[in-house]
Amino acid sequence: MIVLGVILLLVGFLAKISILWTIGIVLIVIGAVLALVGRSGRKVGGRAHWF
């Protein structure tokens, strides 16, 4: 999810499309939160690991 967010950030920045920029930021934040919660040992959404 973080990688997809970075890709959307780059595409949005290069193509000057603000909605892609915004979606990219949101995906990076959500991905970072899921990664932090997952590494803390807690299950996220009923799953112990996200692959």
Score class of each variant (00 low, 15 high):
Met1Ile: 08
Ile2Cys: 06
Gly5Trp: 07
Gly5Leu: 07
Gly5Met: 04
Val6His: 01
Val6Asn: 02
Val6Gln: 02
Val6Phe: 02
Ile7Tyr: 13
Ile7Val: 13
Ile7Gln: 13
Ile7Cys: 13
Ile7Ser: 14
Leu8Gln: 12
Leu9Tyr: 05
Leu9Arg: 08
Leu10Ala: 08
Leu10Gln: 07
Val11Arg: 05
Val11His: 12
Val11Asp: 11
Val11Ile: 13
Gly12Tyr: 09
Gly12Ala: 11
Gly12Thr: 07
Phe13Gly: 14
Leu14Asp: 11
Leu14Tyr: 15
Leu14Met: 14
Ala15Gln: 13
Lys16Gln: 07
Ile17Cys: 03
Ser18Met: 10
Ile19Val: 15
Ile19Ala: 08
Ile19Asp: 14
Leu20Asn: 06
Leu20Tyr: 11
Leu20Val: 05
Leu20Phe: 11
Leu20Lys: 02
Trp21Gly: 03
Thr22Asp: 08
Thr22Lys: 09
Thr22Cys: 01
Thr22Trp: 08
Ile23Lys: 06
Gly24Ser: 14
Gly24Gln: 09
Gly24Phe: 12
Ile25Tyr: 03
Ile25Met: 06
Ile25Gln: 00
Val26Trp: 06
Leu27Asp: 04
Ile28Val: 15
Val29Asp: 13
Val29Trp: 11
Ile30Val: 15
Ala32Gln: 15
Ala32Ser: 12
Ala32Thr: 15
Ala32Leu: 15
Val33Asp: 11
Val33Phe: 13
Leu34Ile: 06
Leu34Ala: 09
Ala35Leu: 03
Leu36Ser: 14
Val37Ile: 03
Gly38Phe: 05
Gly38Ser: 02
Ser40Asn: 00
Ser40Thr: 01
Gly41Asn: 05
Gly41Pro: 06
Gly41Val: 00
Gly41Leu: 03
Arg42Tyr: 03
Arg42Met: 08
Arg42Glu: 00
Arg42His: 02
Arg42Asp: 04
Lys43His: 01
Lys43Cys: 05
Lys43Asn: 05
Lys43Arg: 09
Lys43Phe: 01
Val44Leu: 02
Val44Glu: 05
Gly45Asn: 11
Gly45Cys: 08
Gly46Ser: 07
Gly46Ile: 14
Gly46Gln: 09
Arg47Glu: 00
Ala48Met: 10
Ala48Leu: 08
Ala48Glu: 04
Trp50Phe: 03
Trp50Leu: 01
Phe51Trp: 12
